[in-house]
Amino acid sequence: MLARVAENIYWLSRYLERAENTVRLVDVHSRMLLDLPDVADHVGWIPLISINALDEEFAKNNGIASEQNVCDFMIADNENTGSLHNTFVAIQNNLRSCRDIVPRTSYEAINSACLFVRKKVSKAAMTPGQRSELLGDVRSRLLAISGEINSSMFHDEGYRFMRLGCDIERADMTSRIIDVQSAWLTLGDGGSGLENIAFQQQRWLSVLHTLSAVQMYRQHVRTPINGEDTLRFLLHDSKLPRSYRFCIEHLDNTLAQFNQHEKPRAAIVQLREQLLAADLAELAQTPIELHRFIDALQQSLQTVSSAIAQTYFLPPQET
């Protein structure tokens, strides 16, 4: 497979996963806030911006983080590089360059989703109901695409690059969602009052919700929802599809199938050690430590993705 095309197909997959994450975040977050009528609009909505590290970009054109502002920004804003709209623009651009590799039926599914988003997403204010319907539609399309690719694409290098892109993006998103939670938890009064415990529980519950993991937590962890167990479930569990460990082990398995894989796999070994060495009880108690830990994980993941780029993709063009 051509190195240039491999890079396009890898990014196509990353953006598809990113679109799904954005849909999931906005949707789950809106629903969660319905349970917290007392939280001020701004305090409630700003985490969506922070998860995606878009605080600066948001501040450029927006004042307060109202529901309307944040949702427009995350869904429709064509100046926000991370908006759903622009994610689909990136999907379409990458799709162009690997059109000859993607199965025709998958191409049509992805292309139709791009046309759908372009047509439906506008800056015109959406009611929460309309928004939820739109996000649901986009999500079904993305799931259909993922199924379509899995069942019709030849499971060779091209498919493996899609897997790599998807797992990296997924691991990254799981860590971001936990990270924002650490920022939230510092907002608590730090006391051990009942109110604070309830508040903390609510926060961790929302993290689990965002990652579609509540039901699985209840079935497999069984303890009342708390910080340490939630962190263990989301970071260390080896069967939960969005847990950090699951993603990087998957990543490693995929890499093992390539002819050349030493550099990126060496980077994963390091990342894995770092992940498993964490004292989760301690991290659950000290939000600032949790933030530092997640930060370090993200840097190591970045090392993995650079190693992938150096090993397989076309070197940047000399100018």
Partner: peptide
């Protein structure tokens, strides 16, 4: 795609 050929650019 239809011929099973590689779509290449000069830089490839």
């Amino acid at each position: 795609q239809q011929m099973g050929a590689e779509l290449v650019e000069g830089r490839d």
